[in-house]
Amino acid sequence: MQVRRISAEERLSHSFPLQAYAFEGSPAPAATADRWRDRLPYNEGNRTLVAEDGDTVLAAVTAIPMRQNVRGQLLPMAGIAGVVTHPLARRQGHVRKLLTALLGEMRDEGHPVSALYPFRPSFYARFGYAALPKRRTATFSPGDLGDLVRADLPGDVVWERMGAGYGAYREFTLRLARERHGFAVFPDFRDARLRDDDERWLVTARVDDQVVGAAAYKVTGYDGELLVDDLLVTTPLSRMLLLRFLARHVDQVSRVVAGIPAYELPELWGTDFQVTVEARTVIPSGNAPMARVLSMEALAGIQTGPGRLTVEVVDDPFLKGSFTLDGRGGTLEVSSAGGAAGATLSAAGLSALVYGVLDPEELPLRGLGAVPADAAGELRALFPRLVPHVVADF
């Protein structure tokens, strides 16, 4: 078996057919090859590794060079996608070998964190990934927001096709990535597909000519649903401006289904407001995202609390070792350490702390480390709980 990186053109014959078999209906029609070629520009900067046996591609994995905010620092992030195996080569360890090689290459090229949407979380937990909150959906009737239609709000909204408004939308999401923990953005070559496909409406809330909120959406049909990808807001006013726009669809659609961050509380958006808030995980097609740290040293500078502790990370090819973590200056300082460690962590346990999704006391209960009570206090001070807002679905 040979492992190698394939060229962009080779994706047409090596990785795309396996991805289509794994994630789409099949057999694919003959015209599918043309669709694959149309997708090449949106994959040009990706890194794809394949395992081959002669002329047969046994498995393939891909990394998208993205960026993600981790506790106030916008870091290069490896978005893992297109993890596929030939149907006659499954359960033979090919993906394990490829994924380890791919993560190592991305780490060495300066991507200290990685994220993905798993087909089965337990599989990726063995690679050091920790689960993050899944985006919620808020489902409601636009009629329940009728009071907003008559509200006198400072600011206005702009309504247009995504192709026309893409520039402002892209600039706004890049701003959110600089400000919002967990927020991830595609590279320009991949994100441009949103503009080029032009398959969504875009409404932006603006105050003093600045975009303060945005929603990309589709309408399924008359008396159908208005489907918002993500309701992206920065202030209560920006939320109200977008909700007022949605309220004006009362005689067009029966309900609105809007993606929202896990920390949003739609039940507080209005009085007599009926809403269903839901987050469902489904194996294999609807799991929550996962993320992991690939480089301890590269975390230096992220925002932390006033804790200090030496930890040992075990059983991981990228993080194994002892490190002193010091947040007493407001940002993390990382140094290699000798001597006894105050806590022992797995890569997944460390990642859960960095992303803010687990309390230190939970780690031993989940088999993610050995954390004495005093060490838990220091880790809790270092890494206060946070709710990551992950929107990019890759």
Rank of each mutant, 00 (worst) to 15 (best):
Q2R: 13
V3M: 12
S13Y: 03
S13K: 09
H14R: 15
S15T: 03
Q19Y: 14
Q19A: 15
G25K: 12
P27Q: 11
A28W: 05
P29C: 06
T32N: 13
T32F: 12
Y42N: 05
E44G: 01
R47G: 01
R47E: 10
L49R: 01
V50W: 02
D53E: 15
G54W: 04
V57P: 04
A60Y: 01
Q68R: 02
N69F: 08
R71V: 12
L74P: 02
A78C: 09
I80R: 00
A81R: 02
G82V: 03
V84E: 01
P87N: 07
A89P: 05
R90P: 04
R91H: 09
H94N: 13
L102S: 03
E105W: 05
M106F: 11
M106G: 03
E109V: 05
G110C: 04
V113T: 15
S114R: 04
Y117T: 06
Y117W: 15
P118M: 02
P118C: 07
F119A: 08
R120N: 13
R126E: 04
R126Q: 14
A130K: 03
A130G: 11
A131G: 10
R135V: 09
T137W: 02
T137V: 11
S141V: 05
L145M: 08
L153E: 15
D156R: 14
V158T: 15
G163W: 06
G165T: 07
Y169E: 06
E171F: 01
L174H: 11
R175C: 01
A177I: 05
R180F: 05
R180Q: 15
G182C: 08
A184M: 05
A184F: 00
V185R: 05
F186I: 00
D188T: 09
R195E: 12
R195L: 02
R195D: 02
D196H: 11
R200C: 04
W201V: 01
V203C: 10
T204E: 07
R206T: 05
V207S: 11
D208K: 03
V212T: 15
A216T: 12
K218Q: 15
V219Q: 11
G224V: 08
L231M: 10
L231P: 04
T234D: 07
L241S: 05
R244M: 10
L246G: 03
A247Q: 02
D251P: 00
D251S: 13
S254G: 15
V256Q: 06
A258K: 11
G259D: 06
I260T: 02
P266S: 10
W269M: 08
T271W: 08
Q274N: 14
M290Y: 06
E297T: 13
A300E: 12
G301A: 09
G301Y: 12
G305A: 07
G305Q: 06
P306E: 10
T310E: 00
V314I: 12
V314E: 14
P317G: 08
F318P: 01
K320F: 11
G321C: 08
G321Q: 10
G321D: 08
S335A: 15
A340C: 01
A340I: 13
A341V: 10
G342S: 01
S346T: 15
A347S: 14
G349Q: 09
L350R: 02
A352Q: 00
L353H: 04
Y355G: 07
G356E: 07
V357Q: 00
L363P: 09
G367V: 08
A370G: 01
V371T: 04
D374E: 14
E378M: 09
L379N: 12
P384W: 07
R385W: 03
V391F: 13
A392W: 12
A392M: 13
